[in-house]
Design a protein around this nucleic acid. Sequence first.
DNA 1: GAATAATGTCAGTAACTACTGACAGACATA
DNA 2: TATGTCTGTCAGTAGTTACTGACATTATTC
Lengths: 195, 195
Amino acid sequence: MDGRKQVTGDRLLLAAIDLISAKGYNGVTTEEIATTAGLTEKTLFRHFGTKLNLLESAFERFHYAEEMKILFKEKLEWELEADLLTICRAYHEIMNRDRKLVLISLREQVLLPEFKKRMHQHPLQLLDVLTNYFVEMGERGRMIRANPRMHAFTFMMAHFGAFINDLDSGRNYPDITLEPFILESVKLFARALTP
Amino acid sequence: MDGRKQVTGDRLLLAAIDLISAKGYNGVTTEEIATTAGLTEKTLFRHFGTKLNLLESAFERFHYAEEMKILFKEKLEWELEADLLTICRAYHEIMNRDRKLVLISLREQVLLPEFKKRMHQHPLQLLDVLTNYFVEMGERGRMIRANPRMHAFTFMMAHFGAFINDLDSGRNYPDITLEPFILESVKLFARALTP
DNA sequence: GAATAATGTCAGTAACTACTGACAGACATA
DNA sequence: TATGTCTGTCAGTAGTTACTGACATTATTC
């Protein structure tokens, strides 16, 4: 049990993620992936059998995080603006961590329908957590009480949109960067939702 | 000058848009496109020469709209909530009109970098229009005056996110539909930005 | 009815690509 | 040293696919 096998596998998986996120699944050849990983096409097939299984393994191994709920059940302080900031920082952190996989799952939905669902678990969980948080804040009289789920959804969509917009890093809006956007959007939502 | 040639070309372009948006550029063959259009592969190549040129022609012919600025210089009534509603309805209308092309330009950025830029003109224009509108509303004392561009950007990102989320129509958030979201988000922003 | 333009038919090419088999060399462990 | 595990080499297969040429067919126009 030396780690050679695992190291080799990981190098292939990382090369696959890099190249497929850059050029698309059908835009990359198995040979290209293997040589990028410093290995042979033969080795690639010995490890993963098929090209599709390579991509599936990449999702299996390199996507973490079902830990959203716990994450900030502990960190919230029932102060709207501060909590919104915590929450959306966590969101961007998680999305950015699996940035390339998100890109792939967006583009290759046809190939991997089940993985799109899996990637979608995070946002779904976040929406639940955020909705519950809004409900409780409302009960405590610290937030307006109309439509908490839709408010949470709007907040998430704003940050989802900004994330997607930033994904290709094509600097679509040259005068706007992520961090000021986070701060200002949190302020805006805090103002909108404070009684 | 009978219209046969143009009709044939259009059928090929529409079939190409349908199939490429569904399966990706490399996931569709020229033969598939031709037969879907009820024509022959040979005819496809007689019209467009290459597969890539077919896709490029699809963008040339089927993407309209540089008319954003004029569109609602006329329709605005300097009533924040009503105007936000007008604006974001226009946004969704435009994005939905070229829905499939948006999808393609998101996915095939590598193949068509210049088309991504072109599709991006709409949002950019909208951001400008919206920013100017916010500035003037501020001067009229009908809106808070801090950071109009970032506020406009946040509003757009919320709707961009919702649009993207809706693009694959996979019903990602089963209890949320577009129209209620539009109404509630407009309310929310109006509340946040009213002095 | 003849000329013209557009499309179909069919066979084929050249390039690519996922994937395989046989064999040999490297490297660790024992 | 011997053995097993992992990887490289190389040649090759079978399937796919963008794209072409020669010729026949259909529809339109005059």
